[in-house]
């Protein structure tokens, strides 16, 4: 079976995989990084979003082999040490999560939105969240969190 070499959250990681193994399986099962979640099987919910070479991807829709040689950041790699990343902090401060299951994917998407649209308005954020489903919050506080987190990242 082939091997993939990745840099995950700054650390080198190798895994033996099948051709059909998904990136999310390597993260969750091989590397035990269970913060990345799986909420669907049609690439719709975004619970699995991680950053691959700085771009947000749905890790349920990427073969592990496709990510060979890439740098992956998962929710666990977003903040180092005791402090939260400004976007993590904003989700907590704005009550942008309830059950927490969509949250890792939401936050990884939100960080990317903030990078591309540092001063995004409500309509832009709602449109940009199109690939992330949350069943708990009704999105209002997620939108606020993205705005608040983006502002904090700007000041960063």
């Amino acid at each position: 079976m082939p091997t993939v070499s990745l840099t995950v959250n700054g650390k080198a990681a190798n895994a033996t995989v099948e051709g059909r193994t998904l990136l999310v399986q390597v993260l969750r099962e091989t590397l035990k990084l269970t913060g990345t979640h799986v909420g669907c099987d049609t690439s719709q919910c975004g619970a699995c979003v991680v950053h691959v070479d700085g771009k947000p991807v749905k890790s349920c829709t990427v073969l592990a082999l496709q990510a060979d040689g890439c740098a992956v950041t998962s929710i666990e790699g977003l903040s180092q040490g005791a402090d939260l990343h400004p976007m993590q902090q904003a989700f907590r401060d704005c009550h942008g999560l309830q059950c927490g299951f969509c949250t890792p994917g939401m936050i990884m998407t939100a960080v990317d939105i903030a990078k591309r649209h540092p001063e995004a308005d409500e309509a832009t954020i709602r449109r940009e969240l199109e690939g992330n489903l949350c069943r708990c919050t009704g999105y209002a506080n997620i939108v606020k969190a993205v705005q608040t987190g983006a502002a904090a990242m700007r000041q960063g």
Binding site: K32, G35, I75, Q89, F91, R92, G100, T103
Partner: peptide, 21 residues
């Protein structure tokens, strides 16, 4: 009051059933 549980959830440190091995 800000939620206690968020501290684990926003870091991806929740422990849902499928996370248990």
């Amino acid at each position: 009051v800000k939620r206690v549980e968020d501290l684990r959830f926003v870091r991806g440190k929740g422990r849902y059933t499928d996370d248990i091995r």
